[in-house]
């Protein structure tokens, strides 16, 4: 199987290096820093979900935050209603499925209806805003599902952490759990994009009409990949909710919807590793800035975004990967198997 032979290039070296670093990181830092990094990791899934559907499938979505919210709220309502800690892993799995299902239904209506490109962006934007608006007005006591109040703008508090049997995943354990999930998802996605389905997604991204004439049921593939992206975003929301024990409408709102777009675009949307790395950099940077009380953080971020699109439209991290390939791996054709990714 030539597909399983891994290529030596900057992306893979950095990717492996990053995971090694993340695995030994807790040995050197305080529990507070571990907690922070757990948060970063939970948000990486959200960027990966957009990188998958936008970078590979060519579907531009502002809806990932909505699926994030669906996951987080579902997990909260499900686990808090049951009240049994051993049910939390089931809540996690069900939540991922529900997120995928909701995305699949929305995707079905859009893609079978012939909606594409920026219109998908606009519709998903509307969906996200509606969900945020809806959740924010659920403060009253009539907004209850089972015993759990939706809490309006303040959201739901006291969401239980994930427990394996009677063993609750907290602090370092939660960190390692979420890190292993990330590793599995990351490898899964890397394998996915060189699979048959992955190639189909790339073909659809490059030219929808041509792909149809090659015999592909394009709306079906778009719906499937959109559902997969929704499931990933939902996973992100669930991990976020268990991390902090709370879920609010604004975490699933408009600002949250645009952030993955920005992160994927700035890092390099056609490259999962780049999107992941840039997400870490962004969260580290913004937390450092806001910890120092810097009100210019958002201004700097906005300016950085504009400069990236104007001057390195492929994405910063991807451009660095290419530079690295040219310097260290002497690949005359660094771009030659663009679509094949790592496992050539």
């Amino acid at each position: 199987m030539r597909n399983l032979k891994m290529k030596l290039n900057t992306e893979n070296v950095i990717g492996i290096g990053l995971f090694l670093f993340l695995f030994i990181y807790p040995l050197f830092v305080t529990p507070y820093q571990i907690l922070n990094l757990s948060y970063f990791i939970s948000m990486v899934f959200l960027t990966l979900s957009l990188s998958l559907i936008w970078g590979y499938g060519g579907i531009f979505s502002f809806g990932q935050a909505a699926f994030f919210g669906v996951g987080g709220y579902f997990y909260a309502i499900f686990t808090m209603n049951s009240g049994i800690s051993t049910i939390t892993p089931i809540g996690l799995l069900l939540g991922v499925l529900v997120g995928g299902l909701v995305a699949g239904i929305i995707g079905y209506f859009m893609f079978y209806g012939g909606i594409n490109d920026v219109f998908v962006g606009l519709i998903t934007l509307c969906i996200t805003v509606s969900l945020e608006t809806f959740m924010a007005q659920t403060a009253g006591s009539q907004w209850k599902i089972g015993t759990v109040g939706l809490g309006g703008y303040n959201g739901i508090n006291g969401i239980p952490t994930i427990s394996l049997g009677s063993f609750a995943l907290a602090d370092v354990n939660f960190y390692y759990f979420i890190l292993i999930v990330l590793l599995v998802v990351y490898i899964g996605l890397r394998l996915f994009v060189v699979s048959r389905f992955g190639y189909t997604a790339i073909a659809i991204r490059e030219n929808r009409e041509r792909t149809k004439l090659l015999g592909y049921n394009v709306p079906r593939f778009q719906t499937l990949i959109f559902a997969l992206g929704g499931a990933l975003a939902s996973l992100s929301g669930i991990l976020y909710a268990t991390w902090g024990g709370y879920m609010t409408p604004s975490a699933a709102g408009l600002t949250a919807a645009t952030l993955p777009v920005v992160l994927a675009a700035a890092g390099g949307r056609k490259n999962l590793t780049a999107a992941m790395i840039f997400t870490f950099i962004y969260y580290w940077f913004s937390q450092t800035l806001s910890a120092s009380g810097n009100e210019y953080a958002l201004v700097i971020l906005g300016a950085a975004l504009i400069l990236v699109i104007l001057f390195v439209p492929e994405g910063i991290i991807v451009s660095l990967f290419k530079l690295g390939d040219n310097l260290f791996f002497n690949r005359k054709k660094a771009t030659q198997v663009k679509a094949e990714g790592e496992f050539t």
């Binding site: 531009f60 490109d117 920026v118 962006g121 645009t258 777009v261 920005v262 675009a265 009100e295 210019y296 958002l298 201004v299 971020l301 906005g302 300016a303 950085a304 975004l305 504009i306 699109i309 104007l310 439209p313």
Partner: peptide, 25 residues
């Protein structure tokens, strides 16, 4: 960015971030 619809989405989002935060400051 003429003709680059999706890039213009990202860039105008950047502009909006600067404007709202700038006005706040």
């Amino acid at each position: 960015l003429y003709g680059r619809t999706l890039d213009s989405v990202v860039v105008t989002w950047g502009i909006s971030m600067i404007l709202s935060q700038g006005i706040l400051i």
